[in-house]
Amino acid sequence: MTEPALTVRFFARLREELGTDTLAVPPRPGLTTGDLLRQLAARGGAWRQLDSGRPVLVAVNRVMAKADTPVHAGDEVAFFPPVTGG
């Protein structure tokens, strides 16, 4: 039985600029949202903006999370710009 992947989602400007709304990423023990963000930024190109200092918010399983929040197999991790509803 293979371990379920992490689902990574992007919204709004990030979704558009990365040209992706969902990715499956293999989990790794001890992985945090911050690790995941840097790992994605290392893809280069538009992905670099994830690690550029521009604010990126993160939610894990639809709850706001922090850069040191651990992520596990099967989790849904979402990265998005600061929210602008209302």
């Binding site: 710009p81 929210v83 209302g86």
Partner: peptide, 29 residues
Amino acid sequence: MDALKTSAPFWKKEITDQGEHWVEQKTSD
């Protein structure tokens, strides 16, 4: 309203005669 503006995951894109752009979060909000 204040909390919706800053903590609910909505994003606005404005459409103008000149094109479209994602709205920036306001410090005042």
